[in-house]
Amino acid sequence: MGKIHDRISDRLRKFIEAQPVYFVGTAPERGGHVNISPKGYADTFAVLDETTVAYLDLDGSGVETISHLRQNGRITLMFCAFSGSPNILRLYGTGRVVVPADPDFALLIKNFGPHPGVRSIIVVDCDRISDSCGFSVPFMSYEQDRTLLDEWAERKDVQQRRAYRAKNNRESIDGLPGLSAEETDPTSQHS
């Protein structure tokens, strides 16, 4: 029922692009809390090549993914078919955090739609690409994206977003470093 792939084929790319939601899993090196985050907005995910993907990391109440990746790099992305043929796709790999001050940020941001609350771009080099049946995943209907996160970020000026990030995104719930003081400035770069 399950299959391991050596690359993200056109079929897998189309499957990824058709999913309105995906999940990101990370964990600290030892102990601590495993984190799983749902992600939406179709224009925030990109397949960069046959083994590399990236997504926009938007403002949020926590900074677990950034903290875990900076500590150990381990990440898993999961896509589930909630309509059509049953399928679950997992992309296992090593992630890195690209912040606006990094040299490759300006090139990477061109892969995504404009969003006001971009903290970073997460780039994942996949070392295992596997799919499985998804026979028990329920059918669910997609209605539309929630626009609340973008609306929230648009209501905040630069100082308010900087203060929010300084308060909520400096360290993980387990005390691991998150965004540094220099990384709390909102970016004005968009695709």
Score class of each variant (00 low, 15 high):
140 M>D: 05
104 D>T: 04
58 L>Q: 12
142 Y>A: 10
41 Y>V: 14
110 K>S: 02
189 Q>V: 07
174 D>Y: 13
188 S>W: 04
28 P>K: 12
177 P>F: 10
62 G>M: 05
83 S>P: 02
148 L>D: 13
55 Y>L: 05
33 H>M: 07
116 P>A: 15
35 N>M: 10
116 P>R: 14
66 I>P: 10
59 D>A: 08
116 P>L: 07
53 V>W: 10
90 R>C: 08
23 F>W: 15
51 T>W: 02
20 P>V: 12
170 R>N: 01
126 C>Q: 01
127 D>I: 04
12 L>A: 08
177 P>A: 15
8 I>N: 07
121 I>N: 00
116 P>T: 11
117 G>T: 12
102 D>R: 02
156 K>Q: 14
143 E>F: 09
34 V>R: 13
11 R>K: 13
21 V>T: 15
123 V>E: 10
118 V>A: 00
151 E>S: 12
52 T>C: 03
49 D>I: 00
124 V>K: 04
54 A>Q: 01
165 R>P: 00
153 A>G: 03
158 V>G: 05
132 S>N: 15
98 V>A: 02
113 G>N: 09
160 Q>R: 06
90 R>E: 11
64 E>Y: 03
12 L>K: 07
15 F>W: 10
187 T>N: 01
131 D>L: 10
8 I>W: 07
39 K>D: 07
73 G>A: 11
183 E>T: 01
14 K>E: 14
173 I>R: 13
98 V>E: 00
131 D>S: 15
176 L>M: 08
96 R>E: 15
84 G>A: 12
189 Q>S: 01
166 A>D: 02
152 W>H: 03
86 P>D: 08
187 T>P: 01
103 P>A: 01
81 A>D: 03
49 D>C: 03
168 N>G: 00
16 I>W: 09
78 M>I: 08
65 T>D: 05
172 S>C: 04
26 T>S: 15
173 I>M: 13
91 L>W: 06
66 I>D: 10
155 R>G: 03
191 S>F: 02
144 Q>R: 15
95 G>M: 11
177 P>K: 12
71 Q>H: 06
153 A>V: 02
102 D>S: 02
84 G>K: 08
69 L>Y: 06
39 K>Q: 13
90 R>G: 10
74 R>W: 09
90 R>K: 15
161 R>F: 00
115 H>C: 03
143 E>I: 14
85 S>M: 10
49 D>S: 05
70 R>L: 10
101 A>K: 05
175 G>W: 03
178 G>R: 14
177 P>W: 13
67 S>R: 10
117 G>Q: 07
154 E>T: 06
158 V>D: 13
